[in-house]
Design a protein around this nucleic acid. Structure first.
Length: 422
DNA sequence: TCTGGGGTCCTAGGACCC
DNA sequence: TCTGGGGTCCTAGGACCC
């Protein structure tokens, strides 16, 4: 475990790298199928499926295809593109390789997503030389170890490092020299600032604010009045400051997840109650499994329900005793579903989301505790089966057919007692 | 254009407590 | 009896990111 450096106390101007892999998913696909190289490739699914583009090759981008675009739209823009489903396991594997390269370079590494990371390389001059030279060394190492290209932004704040890595793409390095942040940012569109999306951009445009320079010239009070806390943060960002200002960007603080969720969009909307509830059972299993992997227990369980017209509701319930059990999650989410679904209304998407990790977990009576432990062991065994034989090897789908006992006063968790007779 | 899936953070109102 | 204020938890929704 490496202790992050808090530069507020060292008084040294820090140096951050933002390392961003170029067209990551597409590049990994090319490693496994070199014939894809140079061609328009779209990762995300088949062109006639419901779904969006996860990643597009640079050749596909020339046709206007970009990530988050509906697959059908991508197809109409570029019918000759090669559409692939993608291989999440491969991306995770290569993400680990990337992480290994980075930690071999500097101990202060924070993966920001599957394909990007922040590094604190403050004080490594004697080892790697000045920042640009250090970045070149890292760039070479990355290519050698993974056969993948990356782009590197260098700056005294994480924010500016991130923006400059984007400007460096593809396969480039860009250093914003300390002191030049505001000048560098001023001509950029406000949309380039991480956190400014479609909505905020539109709101800013309404005030005639189009460039980061326009933002930085405004009064902080004005921004706070109109955009609240977020406006104040924007004022700082427009000058290149991270959330807490300069020297407030610890790298390497590794916290676990704050929530876990799984959701499913149907190929065709459905109002079939059994189908819907069995989807909830499957999603509950997936969520329970992840909870056990992370050794977490959740108190708040949430259902997400999207109808054909895309209107979406979420309904949550917090239970007194935290759980990591598929059955308990499923029963909660099924209750929420039954109370909120308008029977007959066609459903596009269902989701199961858990959060609110328990600190200690409350005591159960002895009998309950014993059954609880047995049930935990059963699920752990099922997890191992899935590891060996695949996801479909074991299912609690049987819960829909009454394998599990209903909740009763004696059995509040609805845990199975003795094995039901066949 | 007909809109995934996995996350984080923020806002805002109401309940409840002191 | 017209009535405070702060803190925390819960719930719902939404913007945003990759």
């Amino acid at each position: 475990m490496v202790t992050p450096i808090d530069h507020r106390y060292t008084g040294i101007v820090p140096t951050y790298f933002h390392v961003d892999m170029d067209a990551f998913f597409v590049s990994v696909e090319e490693l496994f199928d070199p014939s894809l190289k140079g061609k328009p490739v779209v990762v995300g699914g088949r062109p006639n499926e419901r779904g969006v583009v996860s990643a597009a090759s640079y050749a596909a981008r020339k046709f206007g295809v970009h990530s988050a675009m509906p697959l059908r739209t991508a197809y109409s823009l570029c019918p000759q593109a090669i559409f692939v489903d993608g291989h999440p396991e491969r991306y995770r594997e290569y993400s680990h390789k990337v992480h290994d390269v980075l930690t071999g370079f500097s101990p202060l590494v924070e993966m920001a997503s599957i394909d990007e990371a922040y590094l604190d390389i403050t004080g490594t001059e004697r080892l790697y030389g000045p920042p640009l030279r250090a970045a070149h060394i890292l760039h070479e190492r990355m290519k050698k170890a993974t056969n993948l290209n990356c782009s590197i932004g260098i700056a005294a704040s994480r924010l500016v490092a991130k923006i400059s890595s984007d400007q460096a793409k593809p396969n480039g390095i860009l250093w914003v020299v300390p002191g030049q942040e505001a000048a560098y940012l001023a001509p950029l569109d406000v949309r380039k600032v991480p956190g400014v999306g479609k909505v905020t951009e539109k709101n800013l445009h309404a005030y005639g604010i189009r460039k980061v320079g326009d933002l930085s010239r405004l009064d902080e009070d004005f921004l706070e009045q109109r955009f609240g806390k977020w406006g104040l943060a924007l004022a700082g960002k427009s000058r290149g400051l991270d959330a807490g200002g300069w020297f407030d960007s610890e790298i390497g603080a590794d916290e676990g997840p704050k929530s876990i969720s799984h959701e499913h969009t149907y190929g065709e909307d459905t109002a079939d109650r059994e189908k819907l509830e069995s989807t909830l059972a499957r999603l509950s299993e997936m969520v329970g499994r992840r909870l056990r992997e992370h050794k977490l227990e959740a108190r708040t369980i949430q259902l997400k329900l999207r109808y054909s017209d895309f209107s979406t509701i979420t309904r949550a319930h917090s239970v007194p005793r935290a759980t990591q059990l598929d059955t308990e999650i499923f029963e909660e989410v099924r209750d929420l579903f039954r109370r909120n679904w308008k029977p007959g209304a066609k459903v596009r998407l269902l989701g199961v989301h858990v959060s609110g990790w328990a600190e200690g977990g409350e005591q159960m009576d002895l009998l309950g505790e014993e059954r609880h432990q047995k049930w935990k062991q059963t699920l752990a065994a099922a997890d191992r089966m899935r590891d060996r034989f695949g996801e479909s090897a074991v299912s609690l789908g049987g819960s829909l057919r009454g394998t599990f006992r209903e909740r009763t006063h004696e059995n509040p968790a609805g845990l199975p007692g003795k094995k039901p007779k066949e």
